[in-house]
Write a protein that binds this DNA or RNA. Structure first.
Length: 256
DNA sequence: ATGACTCCCAGTGGGAGA
């Protein structure tokens, strides 16, 4: 089973290359972030014609998430964090082939002294509380998406410059460790990886060409799922497209 | 460098992203 997450930074712009990528990679489940589409504009028919079912949850201009599956509609679909009043479309979850898939577009946070950072902390608190019950109900669970957190200094191209900056603060990293504390494992770090592996590169300043990026898109697997994980990689190829998203997809493979 | 690029909604500029 192949699982993937991709922040497409506008599905309207990225739809053709996402369809190409689906064809090439054949994921069983793909979660998308930053679709930036209201629900009436979601291109489910085009995606269905390519062979994937979708469930989606969006809003105008910002955010927006979706879950695409290869073999049938996901079951028990949840949109956003139950009990957490949120105006922003950031979470979609569903059960796919016995695996609970939770896709998230975590808040950016903008700056550590901003209101948006306060919202990010509240959102992370709510996510962790909800995941406790999700894990109890679904031991085979994967949490994946754009976390907007670089968990460690080795996930940052210039940790000195980024020290204390958004995505790298102690508070955000403590929250990431809190998710691991639920029994989740960072699939990427289950394997030996090339140094300077990132999932996001700034559009500006030739950052991709210079490989100046952050690893902020993650796939976390539950204790029960961890023994099944055989690989986890970042696919940099779509970032080389003429008109790329600033994020690359991250993939994990599970044994059947 | 309060930048750089891209996307969106707007409407010849500004917010947000990370």
């Amino acid at each position: 089973m192949k699982l993937a997450t991709w922040n497409v930074n506008s599905l309207n712009v990225r739809l053709p290359q996402m369809l190409d990528w689906l064809q090439a990679q054949q994921p069983d489940a793909l979660v998308l972030q930053e679709t930036k589409l209201t629900d009436d504009k979601f291109p489910h028919a085009e995606i269905a014609a390519a062979g994937w079912q979708s469930v989606w949850f969006g809003q105008k201009t910002y955010n927006g998430v979706a879950l695409l599956t290869r073999h049938g509609e996901p079951a028990d679909v949840v949109r956003n964090i139950p009990g957490f009043d949120d105006q922003q479309a950031r979470v979609i979850a569903g059960t796919v082939a016995g695996v609970r898939v939770v896709g998230g577009y975590f808040p950016n946070g903008q700056a550590p002294d901003s209101d948006k950072f306060v919202y990010k902390m509240r959102w992370l608190d709510a996510l962790r509380e909800w995941l406790k019950t999700e894990l109890a109900a679904h031991p085979q669970l994967v949490l994946m998406g754009d976390f907007n957190i670089a968990p460690e200094d080795r996930d940052v191209y210039d940790p000195i410059a980024w020290a204390g900056q958004i995505h790298c603060t102690d508070e955000e990293r403590t929250h990431f460790k809190g998710l691991l504390g639920l029994g989740l494992h960072d699939a990427f770090r289950l394997f030996e990886q090339p140094p300077k592996s990132w999932s996001w590169w700034d559009y500006r300043n030739l950052a991709f060409r210079k490989n100046q990026g952050l690893r902020i898109d993650h796939i976390l697997v539950s204790q029960a799922l961890q023994p099944r994980v055989t690989a986890c990689t970042v696919d940099k190829l779509p970032r080389k497209n003429e008109r790329p998203s600033d994020h690359a997809p991250v993939l994990a493979t599970l044994a059947d």
